[in-house]
Computed example of a mutant assay.
Amino acid sequence: MNFCSDNTTGVSPEILDALTQANTGTAMPYGEDELTAKVQKRFNEIFECETTVFLTSTGTSANALALDALTPSYGSIYCHKDSHINCDECGAPEMFCGGAKLITLPGPHGKLHPGELETALAATNDAVHHTQPAALSISQASEAGTIYGPAEIHHLSAVAKEYGLYFHMDGARFTNALCTVECSPAELTWKAGIDVLSFGATKNGAMNAEAIIFFNQKLAREVGYMRKRTGHLHSKMRFIAAQWDAFLTNDLWLNNARHANAMAQKLKCGLETIAGAELYFPVEANELFISLPENTLQALEDAGYGFYRWHDAGSPLIRLVTSFNTTEQDINGFIQTALEAS
């Protein structure tokens, strides 16, 4: 069993079925099809407002295109030092933005704090020698698997708005966060101050489906051109839309995320009883960061379990990620192997 990432899993059967159904007849290309229009309306319903949506197939393109809409080439994007846009996207946000600069900030449990943000922004000035504050980006859930509640987002938004920053949310695991917070999608986004959301489905059962959702629609005016220019406008867009249509039907998106979150909690409860085990962050979504004795890790690796050792190859800290199709048998087997080695 591979716990390295929720990207290691396959595709929800419902989504595969939807792709098969979409693979009949003809449809207009480049997003002019009926399924894409249907999905746009569905997003409006889910978020309780009029949105402008651009479908794409990768989280990196969703984040980079969204940030390009918010940030001039001489701008600064404020983010957590461990954020995905800083550590894992090979400079794509800076490239798409024409050279904008990421300003990284610390924060416990993978999250930004309004005080740190305000301190950093208060130290800026409008001298031509410096990049200018333009955007704030947070990950939901964070790279530590922790979650921003609506109040936390609102407090960050208040600081961002005071200094004229637009607010972006990297929602690769947005649904996992939503299921834990148990509020509405609107309350976790635009009602708390988010201007644009990169909404991910791929990690939660889709094949390759992401969406850039603009709540502040004036910011979306040029994104269509940039999506085309950068090679992320799919000619057969109906196959991206079909995934979203199935994902958002009959609560598949919520049920998948609830299951992944529940499996992470089960894993946590089993592993934290091991002598020497240490949880590094609260388990709030579907990621678990835990330190285990080296002999336990070796036994798990020898048994064929996949996971990442965090920071370096010799670290006792590992990351475990559960998915929409992780089974209780998978969890029980991992825990039993760990217990027997301890």
Rank of each mutant, 00 (worst) to 15 (best):
K161R: 08
L219Q: 12
V196H: 06
K203N: 09
D126H: 07
N295E: 07
L267F: 04
I77A: 07
I240A: 05
F247D: 01
F174Y: 02
D195T: 13
N204A: 13
G149T: 15
K203F: 15
T273V: 08
L317H: 06
E278A: 10
T146V: 05
I85H: 07
I153K: 01
N204S: 15
E45A: 09
L297S: 02
E94I: 12
S323G: 15
N2M: 07
D170I: 13
I147N: 08
N208P: 06
S57R: 13
A144N: 05
G205K: 00
C90A: 15
S157I: 04
V11Q: 00
E284P: 01
D6T: 11
W310A: 12
A100M: 06
F167A: 05
H113F: 08
N250A: 11
L105E: 14
H80W: 12
C179S: 09
Y308T: 14
A192K: 00
L165I: 04
I213F: 00
F199P: 04
W310C: 15
L267I: 11
L248H: 00
N44H: 02
G231R: 01
S5K: 10
E210M: 15
A160Q: 07
K161D: 04
N295Y: 06
M237C: 09
E152T: 15
I15L: 06
